[in-house]
């Protein structure tokens, strides 16, 4: 449990540094900084191990994903990571532009591609976590895989967030305001067309659900 607290309390800047280091996107000085952090912090090393495992899984999934439909499948499979905990989003990542997501590469892009600005991992822990968020699940047009990502906004310290009022009455729009995850994971797919359903996949820790997302 104390290990989990260490992970959760690692400064965001250090967490970001490790993620960029895992992607090999750091310059020489920043790389040295990341290595020093790993040498000095047990929490950083624990997170590094999680990131490496995540990276391995992502790579294995991505290598199998030749077609866009399979890539979508791979994105969903990433949510099967055991003990995944969704953390509150920082302000500056609210409503992360889809276009920017599409330009990103590597692990961060995969994680953000899930629809979350930041994801914390606590492997092997059946911990409960509350993610305060709003998922705007309005209809989206078919397109590249990452374009299917739902927009997410968050307001720290509250379970509500400002929502666009562009909808007309009885538009059937769906917002996920709050998630309380006991185990497993959750994936939200916005409707593909007006009047369609918002699809919410519920994953168990044993990775039972496979291939969520369909053929599209």
């Amino acid at each position: 449990m104390s290990e989990m607290l260490d992970k959760m309390t690692l400064p965001d800047g250090d967490f970001e540094l490790l993620m960029l280091h895992a992607d090999g996107e750091l310059s020489g000085d920043r790389t040295a900084q990341a290595q020093q952090l790993l040498a000095e912090s047990a929490a950083a090393r624990a997170i590094w191990a999680d990131l490496q495992l995540t990276r391995t899984l992502v790579r294995a999934i991505a290598e199998d994903a030749a077609a866009p439909a399979q890539a979508k499948l791979a994105r969903t499979d990433l949510s099967l990571l055991p003990g995944q905990i969704m953390r509150k989003l920082p302000d500056d990542q609210a409503l992360h532009p889809v276009a920017e997501i599409a330009k990103e590469r590597g692990l961060i892009a995969w994680i953000r591609g899930l629809g979350f600005g930041k994801v914390g991992f606590a492997m092997g822990l059946a911990a409960a976590a509350v993610a305060f968020m709003v998922v705007k699940a309005g209809p989206v047009a078919d397109g590249p895989v990452l374009d299917q990502t739902a927009e997410i906004a968050a307001v720290p310290g509250t379970n509500t967030a400002p929502r666009p009022d562009a909808e007309t009455p009885d538009d059937g729009s769906v917002f996920i305001e709050e998630m309380d995850i006991e185990s497993g994971g959750v994936m939200v797919h916005p409707p593909r067309e007006q009047g369609g359903s918002t699809i919410i996949w519920h994953f168990q820790d044993n990775g039972a659900a496979q291939g969520a997302g369909g053929e599209g």
């Binding site: 379970n159 929502r163 909808e167 009455p169 009885d170 538009d171 059937g172 729009s173 769906v174 917002f175 996920i176 305001e177 709050e178 998630m179 309380d180 995850i181 006991e182 185990s183 497993g184 959750v186 919410i200 519920h202 168990q204």
Partner: peptide, 9 residues
Amino acid sequence: LNATVRAVA
């Protein structure tokens, strides 16, 4: 598994 709070028109 989980609980979600939803706001649905």
